[in-house]
């Protein structure tokens, strides 16, 4: 009986295993292998050399770009967490009817299901030199000259990240908050805790798993991104993803692969650290 139920479970999991083996595990192995290969201007050839890594770690650009990647991830994390927590808190504790809660929650999630690229493009009329932001600031007399740093800068990159990914904080945090036993909060109030004290000593600690899951999402999405940085900075800023995609467009696959391996190891290390704080499967 035990054996049959195990076989059934394997059969049921087999399609998932097959897809992940072919399109995730095998590609990772391939990247690791190719990262030791060599390249000419037009082609790549099998080899076992550490040139790609030596070049990568020997170049000051690498460190700068990795630093920029962490910087984007950290700043985006701070903003998405603050905004996401506040929104989730409002939805979970201040909206009273369930219908309203569902409706507002859907309003938060719908943009996630539309195109990221369109959502980036849609910032252009707002941030451009003659965009709404500059026109408004000029007409209010706050500035005389249009601000140049609104578009194609770190500012616009981070703005787009926050715009695209705050949702990944809202959903898991809201989900955890909804499962907090309301009697804890009443107990805190009955014992004389103020609203802020309740927030700090009761709600935030109980929301930690949701915060952690949201953090994993946001940090990995930002660290692995290349398109947002490219588009929103007008190709003027770089992160690790762009380093990889530049190598790819120059057909320097081995070098791209080596950078990809280092990025993957970095991301997995970060997640490994974050996972120490939360058991994901228990939180769904």
């Amino acid at each position: 009986m035990r054996a049959t139920s195990n076989i059934i479970a394997y059969l049921q999991a087999a399609p998932l295993m097959a897809v992940l083996a072919t399109f995730l595990i095998a590609p990772i192995f391939m990247i690791v292998i190719v990262s030791f290969w060599g390249a000419t201007e037009f082609s790549i050839y099998p080899a076992f050399q550490f040139d790609n890594y030596a070049f990568l770690f020997g170049s000051p650009v690498t460190y700068k770009v990795f630093f920029a990647t962490f910087k984007y991830a950290f700043i985006t994390w701070v903003f998405t967490l603050t905004i996401g927590f506040t929104v989730a808190y409002f939805l979970a504790f201040h909206v009273r009817t369930q219908t309203m809660q569902t409706a507002l929650f859907l309003l938060c999630t719908i943009p996630f299901l539309t195109s990221n690229i369109i959502r980036m493009i849609s910032w252009i009329p707002f941030l451009g030199r003659n965009g709404i932001a500059n026109q408004a600031l000029i007409s209010w007399g706050i500035i005389d000259e249009p601000l140049e740093w609104l578009l194609y800068s770190d500012f616009s990159v981070i703005l787009a990240f926050v715009h695209l990914y705050t949702l990944f904080m809202v959903v898991p945090i809201f989900n955890t908050m909804m499962r907090i036993d309301r009697s804890f909060i009443e107990a805190a109030y009955d014992n004389g805790a103020s609203g802020l004290q309740t927030l700090w000593h009761v709600i935030i600690p109980l929301t930690k798993p949701g915060i952690m899951i949201g953090t994993i999402f946001v940090v990995t999405l930002v660290m692995g991104d290349f398109i947002t940085v490219r588009f929103m900075s007008g190709s003027q800023k770089a992160n690790v993803g762009r380093l990889i995609s530049n190598d790819i467009s120059l057909l320097q696959y081995p070098s791209a692969a080596a950078t990809a391996v280092v990025l993957l190891v970095t991301v997995l290390l970060v997640i490994g650290i974050l996972l120490r704080f939360v058991n994901i499967r228990k939180e769904l």
Binding site: I28, M30, F217, G224, I248
Partner: peptide, 30 residues
Amino acid sequence: KRFKGSGILFYVTITSLVIPSILVSLGVGL
């Protein structure tokens, strides 16, 4: 049900979610 390897399969699935997309693109292309 808990089956042998279910933990690993779960973590591989999570990896699939958090891996930078360009790696999948690059690896499959290669």
